[in-house]
Structure formats: C-alpha cells, structure tokens
Design a protein around this nucleic acid. Sequence first.
DNA 1: CTGCCTGCAAACTCTTTGCACGAAT
DNA 2: ATTCGTGCAAAGAGTTTGCAGGCAG
Lengths: 158, 158
Amino acid sequence: MKIEIQDQYIESFKEFLTRKGLRVTNQRMAIFSAAFTCDDHFTAEELLDKSRNLDDSVSRATVYRALPLLTESNLIREVDVGKDYKYYAANKDVKTFQAQVICMDCEKIFEIDAPFMEWYGKTVAEKLLLSVEDQRLQVSARCDQLRSKGECNKVFTK
Amino acid sequence: MKIEIQDQYIESFKEFLTRKGLRVTNQRMAIFSAAFTCDDHFTAEELLDKSRNLDDSVSRATVYRALPLLTESNLIREVDVGKDYKYYAANKDVKTFQAQVICMDCEKIFEIDAPFMEWYGKTVAEKLLLSVEDQRLQVSARCDQLRSKGECNKVFTK
DNA sequence: CTGCCTGCAAACTCTTTGCACGAAT
DNA sequence: ATTCGTGCAAAGAGTTTGCAGGCAG
C-alpha cells in the first residue's frame, strides 16, 4: 500500500524530468526517494546522507544541483528559517499555507496551518502593485521546558 | 534641529556601551552614526562603506563585531529576508510589528505595519509551550511594472 | 554516439576568528 | 599601565561551478 503511494510520487518526478527534457538518472531518483522518505524537515547535508544509503555514488554537488529541480517540481518545498543553511520538506499532504514555529533550543520546526496568510500577502502586495511569489510567517521561540528541566519531549508536527 | 535628534541617539548608544563596560571608540561611533544616517535598509558591506566616509580606519571585521552591539542596544534591527546576507535598519520611529514585502526584481524592501502578528505569534507559541523570541512575516513578490515597462518607480517605505 | 550528468575539488560569498599592535580608561 | 578594541589576513560554513570522464536516450 504505502509503496504504491511512494511509486506514484516517483512517477510524478520522472514525468517532471521528462517534460523538461532532463534525464532520469539513478542519482536524481535516489535523491528524490531519499527526500520523500524523510518524515521531517531536512538539510542538504542530511539529504546527501540519506541519498547515499540508496546510491553511494551520489555526491554533494549532485544533491545541490537536484534541489532546485525538486522544488521546481513542487514535490519538495524550501523552508528558510533564517539560519545559514536551508531546510527542505516533502510536500506530502500540505493543502493550506503553513507558518513555522522554530524552537531555538530544540532545533525543531513545527508547521502550523495559517490559511489567512494567503489572503494577507496578496492584499498587501497588490497595494504596492506587486504579485506575490512566496511568503513565510515564522516565529522563533525558546523552549521553557528544555531550559528548566534540561530536556524537551515535544514532537515534530510534520 | 535634525542634528540634535541625531545627537540624542548617539548619546543613547554611548550610554549603552558604558553600561555594558565597553569602550567608546571612534570606530564604533562612526559605524553607529553611519547606520543611523541610512534612510534605508543596508547590508554590512554598505555600512562599511558609509562608516569609512566618517572614519577611514574602520575595517570590515569591526563592522561585523559592532553589529551585534547595535542590535542588542535596540537602536538597529536585523532584517533577515532569506538572502545569503543580512539587512539592517535603524529603529527610528518604529512602534508596531512590521511585515516585509520584498521585491525580487527591484531589490527593495517595503515595511508594512502588521500589529496582529504580535498576538498571533504569542498565541501559536503558547500552544506549543514556547515563548516567542522573534518573528517575521515576509512576502516575496515580483514587480509587474519593472517586468513590463523595464523600470520601476516605487519608493522605499523606510 | 551525442551531449547531458556526474564526481571531484577548487572557487565563492558572507561572516567569524587569531594574533599582535594600538588606543581608551 | 592595563586591558579591551582594532586591522589584517586566514579560516569557516554552506553552496556553486569548471572540468574531464561517464551514462541516458
């Protein structure tokens, strides 16, 4: 069951590549599969590790070259939380706009539905005669629990 | 007149330094003054240039070492718009929380009052047992005007 | 077989840091 | 006189790119 769903996404990505006249290589597919089996937000470096589990010939350069394709295909989204490296996440069943709450202590990213953002960004941009391309609403926060008890048992929200 | 207002801010910064047991150096004051005479968002590199107009001994390292002091003193704020370098802006008369609309074509940053963000961030964070440290609401947009007419006459909104 | 893709390593960009000198208190 | 602050240049971190060889179509 689960495998079929996976396969469907893999098919989508192959189609995307073909449609753009790009080649379906082992490395690209390994990187894509690795990205899609992350339940979590991941960095380029983490993606490299995961990809190498599927195809140990994958190099860092290829991961970085594949990431724009993954985001362009809309199967993966970029999540820039203002650190000096970027996070990514698979677009598995995200329907509405999501805000991010970033725990500065736990290093976790919680995604929260914030449907009003769709409207807000559009309204504000239109007043300036601009068309929205992308938007983000982020809250950086401290984990009181971690700071007082020395540990935190919160779990990721997708 | 205008000079007196400026002087007041300079005094605040001197106080801040003294209070923290830090020295009031020519370079720090030059960097601070340069930052405060920018009507605009500026980068570290732009600040270096402006500072050197006031004191040509200012080095890049000192600018980077001064920036955390400037933000800690609350006289300057950091504006991270997801590029690989950071923007800064003087906190001249900012009262409410501000959202940023970033024009990807014109390279301009428009700041918009978004007072509800104060409430929103707090509410969402509390549900996760986190305390808000910082938040940002950003809209990346395209300038239709620039793309069609080849030029854009919008002006910065501080 | 053709030319896009790849791995490797070097290059790049912005920022940080170690060190010895210089200036503020 | 002490220290802290500074400029310089090198180091860092994450990402990008040039090149020669390799594999998809």
